[in-house]
């Protein structure tokens, strides 16, 4: 009998890091026109990597997955000419181009029934006013549950499947990612991704999700 070595999957590589390590790695962006609404300074003191923007400074940076969690306000986060309720438009756009992007809806407008979509589309919610303890609870839980290889790969596989990729395509991509991780070389897999996207006509930035997966295998961020 010939024993074949089982092919390694991304699930096998999904090592759960302790929360303290996850906190050091995760980059968090808060977009809010009222900076005092969010306890950024207090969270930074506790080791979270927090950046704050009063409005969307660079949409491409958001699309490129530069931040692991985006905490997004509903109103006043873009120029008045764009829309007063720009938060929803930005959230919809980001979830379209990168469905794996973790977004926390952050607003004082929970009483506004027209904002329901904003809350529903996000991965989690924070209502204003918010205290630092609750903030930590929500961020930590999201990091533990979704800042994982399984989340990014699961989302990617589901996007590919819903766009007509075959099980073979998906498995091949997974194999390529695992190989690339072993070689610490991403060029091959990105090239394969581009080819797959062209074939399926997908607008989703698969390469961004893949780089997020690769991000897990980079060394720990120094505090």
């Amino acid at each position: 009998m010939v024993w074949l070595k089982r092919k390694q999957t991304l699930h096998d590589l999904d090592i759960r890091l302790p929360l303290s390590e996850i906190k050091k790695r995760a980059k968090i962006l808060v977009i809010d026109d009222e900076p005092a609404s969010f306890p950024a300074a207090r969270l930074a003191e506790e080791g979270y990597h927090i950046e704050t923007w009063e409005t969307v400074k660079s949409l491409s940076k958001l699309e490129d997955g530069a931040f692991d969690i985006i905490i997004l306000d509903y109103m006043g986060v873009a120029d008045e000419e764009v829309s007063q309720k720009a938060g929803l438009g930005i959230l919809e756009h980001l979830k379209k181009v990168n469905p794996a992007q973790l977004i926390i809806a952050f607003s004082a407008h929970s009483f506004d029934a027209s904002s329901s979509n904003f809350w529903r589309l996000a991965d989690d919610n924070l209502g204003k006013p918010i205290d630092v303890v609750k903030c930590k609870e929500v961020i930590d839980q999201l990091l533990v549950d979704k800042f994982t290889i399984s989340h990014y790969w699961g989302t990617l596989a589901s996007v590919l499947k819903s766009n007509g990729a075959t099980a073979k395509d998906i498995s091949r991509l997974e194999g390529k990612i695992v190989e690339s991780l072993a070689r610490r070389e991403t060029a091959d897999v990105i090239e394969y991704c581009d080819e797959l996207c062209r074939k399926l006509g997908i607008g989703v930035r698969i390469a961004v999700i893949i780089s997020q997966i690769f991000g897990f295998f980079q060394g720990p961020t120094k505090p």
Binding site: S110, F111, A113, S116, W119, N125, Q141
Partner: peptide
């Protein structure tokens, strides 16, 4: 004002 808000967010 908006009873729908009761079930917003994830269960914890």
């Amino acid at each position: 004002a908006n009873p729908e808000a009761i079930t917003l967010g994830r269960k914890r």
